[in-house]
Nucleic acid binder design. Structure first.
Lengths: 100, 100
DNA sequence: CGTGTAAGGAATTCTGACACG
DNA sequence: CGTGTAAGGAATTCTGACACG
């Protein structure tokens, strides 16, 4: 759950190299609540590999002309999908434990 | 193989927070060839989660009073172990493929 | 040997704003 | 709406060196 993929350790300049997005764009997508970087005590943003993946998805959508508002909805529903999946898996595990 | 664990994206300040080691120590262990950060075009060091794990091991050894030279040998032999393991696994896979 | 520190320079990141459209 | 840019300040990182032991 709290694996390397989700640890916030990448600075914005590196995210720029990884995604090809400008610093302005990366900050703007945060402003539009599409990503959630953490802040160090000093205030610099830190991103996870998961954030980088999301940014890559955002870049694709933007190229198709999709607006940030729509992209946010898409991201949220795909997240809802993951949560549902996790809940179902939990139910399944409980079921099989009972019949083990 | 080239997963998130081995991608060099963490700057030295973040490694310091993750490991508790001083910048001086982190740089010194590189000088002693215990870790291998990459460099950006500008020259700043970038570390992977794998490097962070190695640094944690180094810190433990150092507390026991082990010298960097000895630690390097330990790290190399444990790496040799991993390589051997990978080779064996390759052999096993080949074997079972033949008898599938 | 391993680590601290002061030194000076170069690149990074931050915010708020103006611009274009 | 989405993105570029110039602006000024603050913190980061780098290297080579002196210090202690």
């Amino acid at each position: 759950m709290s694996s390397y993929k989700h640890k916030k350790v990448i600075s914005i300049g590196t995210v720029n190299e990884l995604t090809g997005l400008s610093l302005r764009q990366i900050r703007y997508y945060e402003e539009r609540i599409l990503i959630y970087p953490e802040r160090t005590k000093r205030g610099t943003r830190k991103y996870s590999f998961s954030d980088v993946e999301t940014l890559l998805q955002i870049a694709d959508k933007r190229e198709e002309g999709v607006q940030t508002y729509e992209i946010r909805k898409d991201l949220q529903s795909s997240n809802k999908g993951k949560v549902m999946e996790r809940m179902l898996r939990g139910q399944l595990n409980a079921h099989f434990r009972m019949n083990k």
